[in-house]
Each structure stands twice: as C-alpha cells, then as structure tokens.
Design a protein around this nucleic acid. Structure first.
Ligand code: ZN
Ligand code: ZN
Ligand code: ZN
Ligand code: ZN
Lengths: 144, 144
DNA sequence: TTTGTGATGTTATACAGTAACATTTGCGAC
DNA sequence: GTCGCAAATGTTACTGTATAACATCACAAA
C-alpha cells in the first residue's frame, strides 16, 4: 500500500470514528510515513518546520497523540518513538518487534499468546492495556 | 522478605557477579525499596539529596543503571520509572504488570507464553531482549 | 449573529537523560 | 609504604523529551 492509499484509508478510518484527520494531523502522519521504522517526535518537529516554517512541540505531540489514539501509530516506549500501524482496520493482536539498534520494525502474530496473557492478568485483577504490545530486541542484521 | 534481608541478598548477589554494591548503589536501592511500585529517577535524586545533601543526576542514573544490569531493578519504559525485582536470583520469566495510574506492581507467570513469543520472533530473525517484560495497564482499584 | 466547541498557536517551563572531565578510592605491584 | 592503575564518584553543563497554561482561530449549531 503506498502512502496516498494509506492516507486515504486513514482519513476514512478517522471519520468513521467521528473525528477528523485535519491538515496538521495528516501532514504529521505523512512525515512519519516517509521514515523507515521508528521516528522521534523531535525529528517530526524538525521536518514540519522545514515544510511550514513554524511549529512548536505541542503541535507535534498533539498530532502524534491523536494518531496513536486512532490506532494509526504505535508509540514505542523503549525508544521514545513512534511507528506507523499498517493494520489499523483489522484489530490485529500482533506483537510489534522493534530493533533497538536500527529501529527496523517487524510484526509477529501472537493472538493466542496475548489472549493467555490477558486471561492470566485478569486473574490478578489487572487489565492489560488494549494497546498493541511493542517488544524490543535485535533484528537479524544488528545481531550479527 | 524485609528490606534488610533483601539488601543482604542483593549484596551477595553482586559479589557473586564479581562486582560491588557500593555505598551509593546500596543507598539508591534502599530508597527505591522504600517506595511502593514504580519510582522515578528524579524522585530518587530528591530523596538522595535529602539524605546526603549533594547529588547530581549522573550519580542516580549510574546507580540505577548498575542495579538494572544486576537484575535488582527493572526499568518500566512506559512510565520512565523503576521497580524492585524480588526474584533476581531465580531468573524468573514472568511478566511484570504495572498500573499506569497508581504505579502498583504485580507479577504473573507466563513462561510458556514468553517462550512461544521468543520462538515466533526468532522465526522472523528477531531476538527478543532477555529483559523481563513489563506490561502496563490498570489495576483493580484504578479500573473501578 | 451569537455562542460554544474543538483545534491550533505561542510561550514558557518541567521532566528525563547524558557527555565530558576532574577527583577520589581501593588495591595489587614493587 | 608508595607507586600506579582501574573503578567509582563528583561536578558542570548540556541535550533531549514532554506538558502546562493561556491566547486565538475555525466552524457549526442555536
Ligand atoms: Zn499495528
Ligand atoms: Zn536492527
Ligand atoms: Zn523481576
Ligand atoms: Zn492502580
């Protein structure tokens, strides 16, 4: 799926949720799409400043927060970064693998494992965040 | 296990690894132990300053890094915080549950789930960090 | 038009983490 | 003991990450 298609789908997804992919939000999403793997907020801020001259941290953080809420991005806590979600429509219960060294992103289906985890946690009165789980490690290249 | 016992065990654990639980490191560990659940670096810094007057961020971060390396603490990326590990001797493969709201910590045994996760990831040429997985969510009280 | 609501702009600041270098401490070699 | 090394700690200054608070704007319902 190329960026244009993705953005169109994203726009539709948002309006179905009763909210809007405004200009700024769309532009931030585009900027994230242009990068491979993990991107940081201040990188996006810099990109945004190149394109529109003015921009402050809150502008970027608001847009990123919105996109995460809509499921279009995932936040990668371990790296203070963000990655594009390419399955925002299908409620995927996959685990997202992020290489701590190069930022490369992979995905592995682990629905059953996750279900077991949720069940075990629920047994302790603990509700696991509905967020998609992001796991860090090393990719093949960076392990070598 | 009370703090004194824990600290003694921690000290022994370190020397078995060929390193030392020095005064500063021990003091930082004590300060983390005094809190319930997740503690932040700058909280520890403040505590430390109360006790010894002087202290700068690197002092705290060095000690925390050391303690994480030794397996005495876990870092909670989602909260920029740290929690005490009470199983540093037994190589536990549990999942650690942290309440995002109140910082309360629980633990659930999910060794088999984790093994499956590692296997699936390895299939994609991805090595999951040996770190203990820390999952965030909501505890019973905070869900209500 | 008025008024309300959500989005954005703007400024300033809080919080988190590290680089670089100086100083101290403990320990084995001599 | 004292010399010399290595690890740990102290100190200063900075970079990076994130948010509070308030002003303004855009658009739609009343
Ligand atoms: Zn996703
Ligand atoms: Zn990599
Ligand atoms: Zn542990
Ligand atoms: Zn809670």
């Amino acid at each position: 799926m190329d960026s244009a298609t993705y953005l169109a789908a994203a726009e539709q997804h948002c309006s179905q949720q009763g909210c809007k992919l405004t200009a700024v939000r769309r532009q931030v999403l585009e900027l994230v799409l242009r990068h491979q793997g993990v991107v940081k907020a201040y990188q996006i801020l810099a990109d945004l400043q190149k394109e529109r001259g003015l921009a402050a941290p809150p502008t970027v953080y608001r847009a990123l927060d919105f996109l995460v809420e809509q499921g279009l991005l995932h936040r990668v806590d371990a790296l203070n970064g963000f990655i594009v979600c390419r399955h925002f429509e299908c409620r995927h219960e996959g685990l997202i693998l992020v290489c701590e060294t190069c930022g490369q992103v992979g995905e592995v289906d682990a629905g059953s494992c996750l279900a077991a985890l949720r069940a075990a946690s629920a047994g302790m009165g603990f509700t696991v965040n509905p967020q998609n789980l992001v796991i860090t490690g090393q990719c093949k290249e960076c392990t070598a």
